[in-house]
Design a protein around this nucleic acid. Sequence first.
DNA 1: GGATTTTACGAAGGAGCCCTCTGTAAAGAT
DNA 2: ATCTTTACAGAGGGCTCCTTCGTAAAATCC
Lengths: 386, 386
Amino acid sequence: MSTLASLGGDLSRLRHLNSLAVIRALRGAEPLTLTAVAEQTGLSRPSTKDVVDQLVALGWVVEVPPSAGGLGRPARRYRFRADGGHVAGVDIGVHTVRAAVADLDGNVLAETRQTVSRDTPVDDRLAATFRAVAGCLAAAGLGQDDLWSVSAGTTGVVDREGRVQISAGIRDWAGVDLTARLGELFSCTVHVENDARLAALAERERGAAQGVNDAVFLHAGRRTGAALIIGGAVHRGFGGAAGEVGLLPVTHWATAADYLHDCPVVPADVPKGDAARHTFDAAREGHPVAVAAVERYADDLALGTSAMVMTLDPELVVLGGGFSRAADVLLPLLRTRLEEVCLRMPELRGSALGEECVALGAVGRAVAHLDQEFFGTGPGSIAPPR
Amino acid sequence: MSTLASLGGDLSRLRHLNSLAVIRALRGAEPLTLTAVAEQTGLSRPSTKDVVDQLVALGWVVEVPPSAGGLGRPARRYRFRADGGHVAGVDIGVHTVRAAVADLDGNVLAETRQTVSRDTPVDDRLAATFRAVAGCLAAAGLGQDDLWSVSAGTTGVVDREGRVQISAGIRDWAGVDLTARLGELFSCTVHVENDARLAALAERERGAAQGVNDAVFLHAGRRTGAALIIGGAVHRGFGGAAGEVGLLPVTHWATAADYLHDCPVVPADVPKGDAARHTFDAAREGHPVAVAAVERYADDLALGTSAMVMTLDPELVVLGGGFSRAADVLLPLLRTRLEEVCLRMPELRGSALGEECVALGAVGRAVAHLDQEFFGTGPGSIAPPR
DNA sequence: GGATTTTACGAAGGAGCCCTCTGTAAAGAT
DNA sequence: ATCTTTACAGAGGGCTCCTTCGTAAAATCC
């Protein structure tokens, strides 16, 4: 039984667990002294030294110069080598492909974008994805070999193996085995996920949903979608379709954004990407036609949201996506409509992240995969970095 | 940091983890030989003996006579002392209070019921609860002191602390601090949960949802409700209202069962508890009025269900509650309606358990609480049973 | 019925990991 | 220059696990 063997074991198992505890103490924090690590892990100082020395020998931890100014003998300081490896997060959208490269702590080093269109052929879209990542690597002074893991997010229903099952926005996208196709482009492991779910992950890790265990994330933009955070983790659903209430005809999510795009207040020469902004601006100034359009949009958004809220009773609903810049207009409307039907009204917040949130979530997912691989709680010992 | 300290630690920590592994190997299984335990845990035979001896000394494990008939020297056999302690699970319903008493492995030793009504005063209902448990204890030859934990399920929204927030069915039930009130009656720890969630837990542990990680449980009976299993665990929601889509007016769940109760095919002198059965029977024989009633009921049930299914994309939907005896009639109707709207149709099954499922789930919850207390993975050592 | 085979028990010896304790080293404070 | 504070480094010891070996108790074979 793997579940039994992963519990106890050898004496080396204890060292393994203590090594993980030390790494967790060192991750993402300022460089720590041995005493500080010992306090956090509960280990004795000599044992801490032993473990840290071993991690230094493996290459996961490096010593940094001691900090001056303190009382007593200066303590040696150590930090996790987050720059020992890197990950890429990609957002393969309808009109834009965004990429971000980060270190093992998720610190973003570079971001780039490539412009595409809904009719860009599959091969070209994949090539643009590769260029976006390559641009990040160049900007960060890294090579392909420094990349240990790549995560990608895209619109549509993505199954467990990373195949696009359904895609509302991108031409010829359904049926593409993204994990395989991207795997040909990159020499490291590749994972693929629905974009809204990665955006939700980003909000949970570094956005509006930090520390929240149960949240609904709304992607309100030219497309309308949703994702769920349950028990602190992103929920996929059995077929990867969790949160896709927008595909139910009764929610009208497929056409909800048209109220904003096709509003008469939008000048005729405005490109579709900017249309909604005009409507929101006009609504802010009280233009009745624009206000009505925004209200009808909020009606549609609230209907699908209420189904998720009633199902899950979340702590928080995050309004994300491009329209989250109009949260000042949308949130009050959404709140009113939800309060009418909700048993217990969840908190309602606008997104704290910008347009890169899917790429950021992809970075987080890639880091999580590496964490599992190198620092998982399972049996085995800690391997040296490549 | 508790999360760090719970990872590694002392040498005693290793022994603790290995003890847990041994206990898990012994739990719920036939008595095992030392060699068998060693194989399952991955420990060496001498270490296994050491750990088992220690557990025997503590009182958690007992030796049983060796089995005859094998080749070679007969091996000593050991088993977990599931009968060292006991739990009670209670279902405090509108018309009936059911109780079950089980050992630490969840094996039910006795079941009883008490009849109440929707207007039974709170104190009397609590007294009936106590009588139901006392009856179980007597039937199993146990005393109050043998009870280590009690879990109760009841209708309505129950908050994290075990207070009834909203109750549709039971008079004066809202506002009752059930954990505190039951705590006065029993000398052990008491936990309270929504009844549908406990029924779902029972289906997951020993019913139709075994091994399923994401499922929706429908309670279809005189009351209509639902509960969710997400990631293998029952989902509460932030305010304990997860799955209460039935409280949304648009679902019509509050009145859905009336189609069945008030159907003209039901003879006038039939008590309300049996009315639905007549309607289902008539529908089976093709009586048009009854068929129409069942179809309207299925319509309402499907609407709320579709919201949950679209939100969660579960692997399975379980039809439980009193009407699950009419699963042969209801499931096809429900399937047709869900297939119309569902992106990916989940599997659909009738409940595998009877009317005791809430009490069974409560037993499971009580056992889980004790497991956490005695055999949790957290720091500390294994304490002797009381 | 005795020898053989099979399986399990029990004790001894050894290695790894962590702890406590003690003395030494390096900085600022007096 | 000395004292105080903080950290480093090593020694010694205890606990837990592993491997190895000889012994014990059953069924099987001749």
